[in-house]
Design a protein around this nucleic acid. Structure first.
Lengths: 335, 335
DNA sequence: ATGAAAGCGCTAACAG
DNA sequence: CTGTTAGCGCTTTCAT
């Protein structure tokens, strides 16, 4: 019934050529006469031949894979980065091997270990903090390592990112410029989400620069904190720090949750409370009032990473750091 | 500088055993004495050996890949399905090869073509409509084909899904039971999003059953329609069909956008207008008022698909259809 | 432009 | 429990 699938040798025999010619016919630029090529491709189609990338990879020692790990699939920001990567790498015939870590460094290590076995041409990770073993694996992988969404102190290889702390500082500046001084920060449990932690640190550092009280910090569950957790955090904030004038949330999702909690309680935003988020998610521009936020240009992070990977294939270079400046977006929630 | 990475043969030599023993030491159940295994693993670690999955796959003719195509990465529903799949397949050591089609059947075909070259053990696609060539490729792939998120008329292989049309009918029932008769539907451009089209068809069919006017249909852009497009669609709806009492949106995202448009115009929801969505996204439960919706149990779709894939590896079976009944969730927006 | 030979790194199959 | 032999399907290399 299910007889063995045809190989190049079968196609070669049927087309009356050598396997090598079939191989060439399946490549873009290889030197095969157009006549021969079309006969071969036709024959292959008829036989139902499917090219075996595994064998090709083994022999040529090139996998055409780029491994990518992101904290979460269900996140517009990371999805945009992956999109930028995919679109940038597709023209070169590179396929993405995508995995998500659930914001867990041990899971990241496991994924990196798995992925390296597939011999990717490059590996893209999110953030600059990893388990010691993950770090070691990446350092010795012998391929391009790209750390994104961060500016690590000690990069492993190339970096395409931004300073989460500095980004939040720009939002603090905005509030201070408007005369608001009693500011708060809503985030998640520290250890897991390193970028979230960096944002909180940026908040604290910025407030200290201004001589303001940096202790209005509310944690709400395990990162990535959800809209619902953002709402719960706002409830907690109103109870613990009722004097708060404005709050910066670790992401637009929690910011939106916080906003809805104000709506449920009849607290005017802006007016009685101002709210800012991070990430420039769809919800931030659509909700009422629209949320001020910071756009980290996730698509560009992916696109630049892809560009660098391709450029490194042409000509290897020492580790580079590409900084992508986030953009402050001011909207009704911080009128 | 970068000398050739070590192979199993190198590890074998260093550990004083044969390559075959090294191979066995890297497998779970293979019969190797614990002493030998630990020596080998230790040696491998020291040499910085990384297992070559490509060579393993070629020789064993098993890739440990399961290919998965979803319409979009940035979608909580599909992300949940992928999560269900990942978690279900991980214990078996199967890795997911994930691609997104951007709701484009030609892109799906391209992806399927690419993925089949990697010799996956099974392929999971979203929906039951494909290009003719994609269909042919899947039919002749010689591996388990799983169609999800739909109940196709002519399945290629196994099916894990639900009827989008029936799901929407249950929401129509709810409105009619509450005495609302002037109902509308907000969706996207028909051709691309086949599940969205099915939902619209379900809406029309249900209204016809009740003898109601099924012509209040508003299109808003190219699927997947965004929150902003949902808002624009509501504006259009209010202009074209001002008598509308309730609207069902193709997803919670457009439903939320529609809700915000009502908020901007001071239209009371519920009261002057009732709104329902689809998908049970986070935003639907958090926004004010919370949105009635339909939960298609995306995680379970993924989990059941994984379960079936594993079961088929044990014992092949004729094509199965697993139906996952969606759940109607009633909230404040349709009080 | 095409072909022949060899081998990528691993493991199935068989032996002991 | 461990080893030997052969070969997975392709492409590198070297011919012609």
């Amino acid at each position: 019934m299910t007889r063995k699938p045809p190989t190049m040798a079968d196609v070669a025999k049927a087309a009356g050529v050598s396997p090598m010619t079939v191989s060439r016919a399946f490549k873009r630029d290889a030197s095969v006469s157009e006549a021969t090529r079309s006969v071969i491709l036709q024959t292959a189609e008829t036989l139902g031949y499917v090219f075996d990338a595994t064998a090709s990879n083994l022999r040529s020692q090139r996998s055409d894979f780029v491994a990518v790990t992101v904290p979460s699939l269900n996140n517009a920001n990371f999805a945009e980065t992956v999109r930028g990567l995919t679109e940038g790498l597709r023209p070169a015939g590179l396929q993405i091997l995508l995995g998500y870590t659930d914001y867990d460094m041990d899971e990241e290590e496991r994924l990196i270990d798995q992925f390296l076995r597939r011999r990717p041409e490059a590996i893209v990770v999110t953030g600059g903090r990893h388990t010691p073993r993950a770090r070691r694996l990446l350092e010795h992988a012998g391929i391009a390592v790209m750390e994104t969404w961060d500016l690590p102190d000690a990069p492993i290889g190339h970096v395409i990112g931004f300073s989460n702390a500095e980004a939040v500082r720009s939002m603090v500046d905005h509030f201070v410029a408007r005369g608001l001084t009693r500011l708060a920060f809503i985030g998640g449990d520290a250890a897991r989400d390193t970028r979230g932690t960096d944002r909180r640190r940026g908040f604290i550092a910025a407030l200290e620069t201004y001589g303001l009280d940096p202790t209005r910090l509310v944690d709400a569950g395990t990162p990535p904190i959800s809209m619902a957790e953002g709402a719960a955090a706002m409830a907690l904030l109103l109870q613990r720090f009722p004097e708060t004038q404005a709050v910066i949330c670790v992401s637009d999702l929690s910011a939106f949750g916080a906003l809805t909690e104000c709506q449920r309680r009849g607290i005017a935003v802006p007016g009685a409370m101002e709210i800012a988020g991070f990430g420039n998610y769809d919800v931030a521009s659509v909700c009422v009032p629209a949320l001020s936020t910071i756009d980290p240009h996730p698509r560009r992070i992916g696109a630049e990473t892809a560009r660098l990977i391709l450029s490194l294939r042409e000509m290897p270079s020492p580790p580079q750091t590409i900084s992508i400046a986030p953009t402050l977006i001011l909207r009704g929630s911080t009128s």
